[in-house]
Write a protein that binds this DNA or RNA. Structure first.
Lengths: 205, 205
DNA sequence: AAAATTATTGAACGGTGTTCACGACTCGGG
DNA sequence: CCCGAGTCGTGAACACCGTTCAATAATTTT
């Protein structure tokens, strides 16, 4: 059995990821301490550094898991709602709000976490971020058939970022954020306005 | 002279704020260390805690200064551009992009900084955040005279948050953010869409 | 001028991420 | 089946962090 060692290694990695995930879910990103995580995972302090380069990389793995779950939620949201492009975009935005609300700390960690300046995240992790805009492209393309695929991708990023901004400032409880009670309604209004604006921008509409 | 002491105290506070501001501008929020800031301000380590409760409060003072500067920039942007509500909103958004770009780390610190969970920022600092939406209310109200002042305030927050989200993800260099080269154009397109959408939502327009 | 009060100092404390020599363990060849 | 080469897990130790506090210096009051 040449894979006994590798099995133990991936098992340790998974235990550490699960421990860090639980830690984030309970106490937020700032609550992720090497000593607490390793204690929860049932290993020694130094073991963390045999499984991952550093704590940042461990957090990146948790974030990738969260992104995967979020991607699945958005995918089923779009699959469930087969209506007009407007309805699909509203369903996606509503699902984003729901996911962020129900997984507040894990979702928050996606954008709170910062690598040291100048350090790029590994490719596998960057790829996982694509789920945030993948589902937007098709319905947005239906609304704006005049856009090139390059421009469409750009506008999808902008659309996501706009909705994300409203959700983030609200769930962070910032002074300028909308109250959480009004979040869903405000996101609906924003998507509505953006969709109507897109309609008008379409030549001949 | 009973104010000699008070003068020295506020001088120390100002030196510390200036030092922390320079530190953020040069190395980002994460680069603000008590020892470096006090060394730069020319005082002992412990002096920081005679001037402020802790480092968080010092950062809050820096952020309030940044918010004041940002508020003035937005105010002159609106004063300079006396056009249609659409043009005013575009000018405000463009100025926000410009300020964020030109003061990237200080602007970033406004939203990167987090107080420990459950700790509310002091009232004076919360009030300073109002500049982010103050200038938006008037032009938005002109576009949507049907909205109550309560709803108008809410929609102003949403409008700001949408623009802010696009700027933040872009300047952070996130994978899903728009490239910085396209930021200004995408923000213009977003504001354009939101304004057109607001027009359509107006009864009888 | 001396006493009382206040401000400033920097060593020390507890907690952090990360490292590394050491001992335990796994694995392939006899 | 066993044993040496190589790998992995361990936790004490290190450097650095924010924060505190007894001691010292400075200022104000008497």
């Amino acid at each position: 059995m040449g894979n006994k060692r590798e099995a133990r290694r991936t098992d340790l990695q998974n235990r550490l990821i699960a421990a860090a995930e639980a830690q984030i879910a309970e106490t937020g990103l700032a609550g992720v301490k090497a000593r607490e995580v390793t204690a929860r995972a049932g290993c020694a302090l130094g073991a963390l550094y045999t499984a991952f380069d550093d704590v940042d990389m461990l957090v990146l793995h948790v974030n990738s898991r969260t992104l995967t779950r979020l991607g699945e939620a958005l995918k089923t949201a779009r699959a469930t709602c087969d209506g007009t492009p407007e309805e699909v975009l509203q369903a996606l935005a509503a699902e984003y709000v729901r996911f962020a609300r129900d997984n507040r700390r894990l979702w928050s960690a996606l954008f709170e976490h910062r690598l040291p300046e100048g350090v790029e995240p590994p490719t596998w992790h960057k790829r996982d971020h694509a789920v945030l805009i993948e589902e937007i492209i098709a319905p947005l393309g239906a609304l704006r058939p005049d856009l090139s695929s390059k421009m469409l991708l750009m506008r999808a990023r902008t659309t996501f970022a706009a909705v994300h901004g409203v959700v983030q400032l609200s769930l962070q409880g910032r002074f300028v954020g909308v109250p959480q009670d009004s979040l869903a309604a405000e996101v609906t209004a924003l998507v509505d306005a953006m969709v109507r604006g897109a309609h008008l921008a379409r030549p001949g509409a």
